[in-house]
């Protein structure tokens, strides 16, 4: 397919002009001196959460099935305690598809209790299944 070039004066020309303006806006990003520090903070917070989740999982594996359920519930409480309450307008429309990385889902995944897959077509992430292992029976 040939590269599309629009004639000046028509709708396509106007579109090209608009895109040119948008490209100019994009071409001059403000400096972001705190970018790396911001990334480090997020990474460290994630590592800490992962460590906590691993501890809970290890504990759950050593407990009886009933104890494992209790530990799982405690894990869920721990993970969800870090989430901010959603403002009414941010409540997801379709509860089947989870926004990711949602701290709760991320925690489940990190604890090995859920499988999350990226869904390219839907631009999101889908919680495929929550697989509660028969913990404590090993």
């Amino acid at each position: 397919m040939r590269e599309e070039k629009s004639r000046p004066g028509n709708a396509g020309g106007e579109l090209d002009t608009l895109f040119e303006g948008l490209r100019e806006e994009c071409a001059a990003p403000p400096s972001a001196p705190g970018f790396l520090a911001g990334f480090r903070a997020r990474r460290d917070a994630w590592r800490e959460r992962t460590d906590q989740a691993a501890t809970w999982r290890l504990l759950a594996l050593r407990l009886s099935p009933v104890g494992a359920l209790a530990a799982g519930a405690a894990l869920v409480m721990t993970l969800s305690s870090g989430t901010q309450p959603l403002a009414p307008e941010t409540v997801p429309e379709a509860p089947v598809t989870a926004e990711y990385p949602d701290p709760f889902v991320a925690g489940l995944e990190e604890a090995g209790l859920a499988t999350v897959s990226m869904n390219d077509e839907d631009a999101g992430y889908e919680l495929l299944a929550v697989l509660y292992e028969p913990m404590g029976t090993r």
């Binding site: 948008l22 970018f35 990334f39 990385p101």
Partner: peptide
């Protein structure tokens, strides 16, 4: 920025993507 037209949001999403 081409998506969200807000540099602060773009920075936030970029950090998230890197994580």
């Amino acid at each position: 920025y081409g998506y969200v037209l807000d540099w602060e949001v773009a920075e936030d999403v970029a950090q998230d993507a890197f994580l």
